[in-house]
Design a protein around this nucleic acid. Structure first.
Ligand SMILES: [Mn+2]
Ligand SMILES: [Mn+2]
Ligand SMILES: [Zn+2]
Ligand SMILES: [Zn+2]
Lengths: 145, 145
DNA sequence: GCTCCGTTGAAAATGAATTTCAATTTAATC
DNA sequence: GATTAAATTGAAATTCATTTTCAACGGAGC
């Protein structure tokens, strides 16, 4: 099971860093994996409070940061002023289509675009480390309304 | 002259909106056009203070917002936590290469990438309104150091 | 000059992200 | 199981860019 694997990954990371496994961290990872992707800290925090009203925002924030550091999550910004986190399958990459009406986020991957990006970077003397491609527009549903 | 044209454009916009032409607004536009692109509010503000120490940060901020509204400037975010503005030639578009070492920003345009973006969006039922493509890496200069 | 109303700049407010710190919990050691 | 050192927690404070407030000011038409 994928969740179990990720949970072990996290525990291993904590151990390796001399950090501790806590009930909060377990709970946050559990809920992070259960919830859909692209959640903000606030959104995850609110979901968690329903299960554990005493959880602190700072703890959620710090734990998401831990997830990023150990490769479980990736931090994104889609221009609405707050960071969003998504679970990331290792060694995979995708870009995003974002509906400016309803906020829907669709993921895509296009090797042709990636290749052209490398080409452009190369011809400008750059060695690419990462990139960011976001397409903003109106989704099918919103257009047919 | 391009600057003169932009200045007139701005005056026309102000007039059309029932806004006023002021010495501050003229000064800010002058300096914005003189300075290189991709400046943050803070950077422009500091430059302006050397010429007019009484200028207010809020005025610079509001005026940059006006520039955006009337199509003279475009607001960008390159992930360093502050917005940057660049003068935009009307109906032109470009994307960015950003050096993560020295902060250098190189502009590029690739119709092939743009075309593929449309294709991807289309096949996902999206009508694209705008997009954002940023390539982060190490520039030639920084690599040879 | 007079008046209306938009503008200005200092200061305050906002909001997401991050840090502080005393109390608490974990996990290693006895 | 008790002891202890060190990490963690959560509330509150802080940070930092951005945005707003508001009283004084200034531009434009009369
Ligand atoms: Mn995604
Ligand atoms: Mn540019
Ligand atoms: Zn939609
Ligand atoms: Zn460089």
């Amino acid at each position: 099971m994928l969740k179990a694997k990720t949970k072990n990954e996290f525990k291993d990371y904590l151990l390796a860093q001399g950090l501790k496994s806590t009930s909060q961290r377990e709970l946050i990872l559990e809920e992070f994996l259960r919830a859909g992707s692209h959640l903000s800290t606030e959104e995850l925090y609110l979901r968690l409070r329903k299960k554990q009203p005493r959880i602190g925002y700072a703890t959620v924030h710090r734990t998401l940061k831990l997830f990023s550091e150990c490769g479980i999550a990736e931090r994104r910004h889609f221009g609405d002023g707050q960071a969003r986190y998504e679970a990331c399958a290792r060694d995979e990459h995708h870009d995003h289509l974002i509906c400016v009406d309803c906020g829907k986020i669709v993921e895509f991957e296009d090797p042709r675009i990636e290749k052209l990006q490398d080409e452009v970077a190369c011809s400008n003397g750059f060695a690419i480390e990462r990139h960011r491609l976001e397409l903003y527009g109106h989704c099918q549903d919103c257009r047919s309304k």
